[in-house]
Computed example of a mutant assay.
Amino acid sequence: MKNTRQILGLLCMSFAITSMYGCELKPKKTTAEPVLAQVFSPINDEKPKNNTVKIALLLDTSNSMDGLINQAKSQLWDIVNKFTYAKCGNEERPELQIALYQYGNDNLSSREGYIQQVLNFSGDLDDISEKLFSLTTNGGEEFCGEVIHTSLKQLNWGDNPDNLKMIFIAGNEPFTQGKLNYKDAVTNAKEKDIVVNTIFCGNYEQGINSDWKNGATLTGGEYIAIDHNRKVVHIDTPYDDVIIQLNSKLNQTYVSYGALGSAKMEQQRTQDSNAYELEEVVAVKRAVSKSSRLYNNKKWDLVDASDDATFDIAMIEKDELPKELKGKTKAEMESYIQEKKSDRSKIQNEIQALNAKREQFIAEKQKDGEKGELENAMLEAIKKQATKKDYKWEE
């Protein structure tokens, strides 16, 4: 179907774009929910913060879209790292939730319009990475209107006017395909205060003629056309190997607990490996993301969980504790967790400091245009929208 190398970069850049829209100007008082309730009752997800950015990525996984998927896997970390610096007008840091759909793949059910929800809204970066790496391509029919409508129907977008809600859909077949008129789908999105952004892989005018631009314009979204054959140049730096080594040390600061603990630690290691096998620079970017506020695992890690004001290690059942804490007194367990927390903070600060030098090195070596037109277009959109919606970017 289409060879789209940068489409995905685009998509992921969309994450960042999210920060550009709405910020709640006056913080509202909320009652913090106990961490343990989230752990032992996973069905009851914690209440999202008022400043939450919700992004649904709708990716075409028909034939020849492997480049798109690979870009998504690598660009995810670029977007997360950019998003780390977003701040609302009330000085709060917005939360980020991402949902993932694939469409246009013959392996999917024809009764469902060759559409599948791969991931519901989630802020778990390891889950998002795992789902992206699970995608494979196969020929199929691409129904843009149908996949937009499906995401509106299945996802819990909420009705909080302070939340920024966005759809990013990527592909290169006519936007008009399928029985469901895309105009009805995007009109429904606009009524729900959801902005639809379209990414066309191909000639700009061709995207306009096949209604990709109109699909975005009807909701006030952005239309972007990219040269999918243009390869982004990654620059190796003297700091990459050290950051990867620090990432291994960072993993050693996690103290798993509960039913999720063991599996989530294994998932963490697997996603590190996936990133490294894709490209070493992707592993570096993932390590930087793991040193940020957006990588939080309080549902299975005692160090992150201990940051909650309601957390009490004594409330955890003995059989839910990791082996290194079994048989210890409450004071000994708290001391152990505090030691790991101190180690983690030090390692994360080292990674952030090295990444600052890394980014400066890249900026000095990078030639004009090497970022790729997709990335440049997305960053411009982010800055523009951030100003309009009272977001700031403090890098």
Rank of each mutant, 00 (worst) to 15 (best):
Phe143Gly: 01
Asn355Pro: 00
Ser74Lys: 09
Ala37Lys: 14
Val255Ile: 15
Ala331Tyr: 07
Ala37Pro: 01
Thr150Tyr: 14
Ile313Phe: 05
Asp241Glu: 15
Lys388Gln: 10
Glu334Gly: 06
Glu332Val: 01
Gly207Met: 07
Glu395Thr: 08
Val281Gly: 06
Val288Asn: 02
Gln352Gly: 02
Leu278Tyr: 05
Gly171Ala: 13
Gly372Cys: 02
Leu11His: 07
Glu350His: 08
Lys346Arg: 14
Ala283Lys: 10
Ala356Met: 12
Lys26Pro: 02
Cys23Val: 08
Gln271Glu: 14
Met13Cys: 09
Ile69Cys: 06
Thr187Phe: 05
Lys231Asp: 10
Asn209Ser: 13
Cys12Trp: 01
Phe361Ile: 04
His234Ile: 06
Phe83Val: 07
Ile243Ser: 07
Asn247Gly: 07
Ala363Ile: 03
Val233Trp: 00
Ser110Asn: 13
Leu325Phe: 07
Asp368Gly: 02
Asp45Cys: 04
Lys26Tyr: 12
Glu334Thr: 13
Gln267Arg: 14
Gly89Tyr: 00
His149Ile: 08
Gln348Pro: 03
Tyr103His: 04
Ile226Thr: 14
Lys357Asn: 15
Asn376Leu: 12
Ser306Lys: 05
Ser110Glu: 15
Leu76Ser: 05
Ser134Glu: 12
Glu339Asn: 15
Asp193Met: 12
Lys323Asn: 09
Lys328Asn: 03
Ala56Gln: 05
Glu380Phe: 06
Arg230Cys: 05
Leu59Cys: 09
Leu218Gln: 06
Ile313Leu: 08
Asp66Ser: 14
Ser345Asp: 14
Met333Ser: 12
Asn197Tyr: 00
Gly140Ile: 04
Trp393Asp: 00
Lys388Trp: 04
Ile128Val: 13
Asn229Lys: 07
Gln71Val: 03
Gly171Phe: 09
Asp272Cys: 02
Lys231Asn: 09
Ile313Cys: 03
Glu141Thr: 13
Ala225Ser: 13
Lys384Arg: 15
Val118Tyr: 01
Lys298Pro: 01
Ala225Asn: 06
Leu218Ser: 03
Asp159Pro: 05
Glu394Ile: 13
Phe311Trp: 10
Val303Ile: 15
Gly220Ile: 06
Thr30Cys: 00
Gln271Cys: 10
Thr329Trp: 08
Asn229Trp: 07
Thr198Pro: 07
Trp77Met: 01
Ser41Lys: 10
Lys29Met: 13
Asn90Leu: 11
Arg111Ile: 09
Met13Glu: 12
Asp240His: 08
Cys23Leu: 02
Glu141His: 11
Thr176Trp: 02
Ile199Val: 15
Lys389Val: 11
